[in-house]
Design a protein around this nucleic acid. Structure first.
Length: 357
DNA sequence: TCTGGGGTCCTAGGACCC
DNA sequence: TCTGGGGTCCTAGGACCC
């Protein structure tokens, strides 16, 4: 296989949460609908294309969205439902190949190099996937096809909704290099302005050899891999590791809070939610992180690694309070969070050992 | 219009060990 | 008398993504 180019597909569900709501409530079809955490306060998670026509976008505050589109219908997020639907989506894709890497709830990379051979053109395969996905699950998607994951992702972004875009390696110079640097996947609102300041304005500018050392300073240790992947080199490996790296929950209060009993109540319910998910995934962890965000949006994280593992609500709650109390927070609190990282399988737990002490 | 909630990966300094 | 060097783990914060 080495030296031969792959056919990597990036499959991206269009307006997934909003479409999911339209599936179970057909009255919402063709309407401007926005999925939001809470009415009144909070931000838009996803909006239908009808709502987007009014300028409603993800991450926009609900008040702003309502100003742009007064007849916008709000639906509250229902994560468990979307997760179930997402699993069906991934299982559908797995009927084509086991080389499926799920990168988020609504996106997957597939290596379809071998499957493409059974079709006249790669676009025929993409069209079949798109059509069958819509027929079986009512989900519309955009598909990007290229020689690696980065280029496939950039391709799927080019035509939405229900687009299919193929970028051959020799087309990279014309189709990828002229794209503004702030539209590059992996370059966000912090790094893009820094690059622009140095006159690196489009993706192709990253390959300017005279600026290599400068770019390396800005992009850090992955610079070389980044420069390769924009040229279509490497970055084709499909990761089959589906294990979670961390599990956490956080919650913003309706109003900033100083009352200790409200704080402990929130911590207890967060501990319950996190504990349930640890158990559902049959994992434990000894690395606990507590997040505290105050009214001025200052966010502090405190993490502790114990020499024993945690999974039960009451134990988590106890440790969380110890960490919180040490901080002596005086300002009103906006958000609290609990998270576990470095998860390990329950069978590897040293929890039993702790009980024997 | 003040800014959700779920994640992943990287950086940088310090502790500790050999 | 100035105080090696490498590896690993821990903690805190940050950038980015959907």
């Amino acid at each position: 296989m080495i030296g031969l180019d792959r056919f990597i597909f990036h499959i991206d569900l269009n307006a997934f949460y909003a479409v999911a709501e339209q599936i179970r409530n057909p009255e919402l079809k063709d309407l401007p609908v926005a999925i939001a955490g809470r009415r009144g306060k909070g931000i838009i998670t996803t909006a239908t294309y009808e709502a987007r026509a009014y300028g409603v976008k993800s991450a926009m505050s609900t008040t702003e969205a309502l100003r742009l589109c007064p007849n916008l219908t709000f639906v509250e997020v229902d994560h468990p439902y979307y997760s179930k639907l997402s699993k069906k989506f991934v299982n559908f894709l797995k009927t084509y190949t086991d080389q499926v890497e799920q990168v988020s709830i609504d996106e997957c990379y597939l290596d379809l190099t071998d499957v493409v051979k059974n079709y006249q053109r790669p676009l025929d395969l993409a069209y079949e996937i798109q059509t069958k996905l819509y027929e079986t699950l009512e989900l519309s998607c955009s598909i990007g096809i290229s020689v690696n994951k980065f280029l496939a992702k950039m391709a799927s972004d080019m035509q939405k909704p229900m687009g299919i875009t193929l970028i051959r390696k020799e087309e990279v110079i014309n189709k990828i290099y002229p794209i503004p640097i702030n539209e590059m996947h992996g370059i966000g609102k912090i790094t893009a302005p820094i690059l622009m300041e140095h006159n690196i304005k489009v993706i192709g500018d990253l390959l300017n050899k005279d600026k290599y050392l400068l770019i390396k300073q800005i992009l850090g240790k992955n610079t070389d891999k980044t420069l390769e992947k924009i040229q279509g080199i490497g970055n084709y490996e499909i990761s089959l590791d589906e294990s979670l790296k961390s599990i956490g929950h956080s919650s913003t209060f309706l109003e900033d809070v100083t009352d200790y009993s409200i704080i402990t109540q929130k911590f207890y319910s967060l501990a319950q939610m996190v504990s349930n998910r640890l158990k559902a995934h049959k994992v434990v962890s000894s690395t606990l992180t507590v997040t505290i965000r105050t009214g001025d949006f200052t966010t502090v994280t405190r993490s502790v690694t114990f020499d024993y593992d945690l999974q039960d609500t009451d134990e988590i709650y106890e440790e969380v309070l110890l960490i919180f109390d040490r901080e002596n927070v005086e300002d009103p609190i906006r958000l609290l969070g609990i998270s576990f990282s470095k998860l390990k399988d329950y069978s590897e737990s040293i929890y039993q050992y702790r009980l024997e002490i």
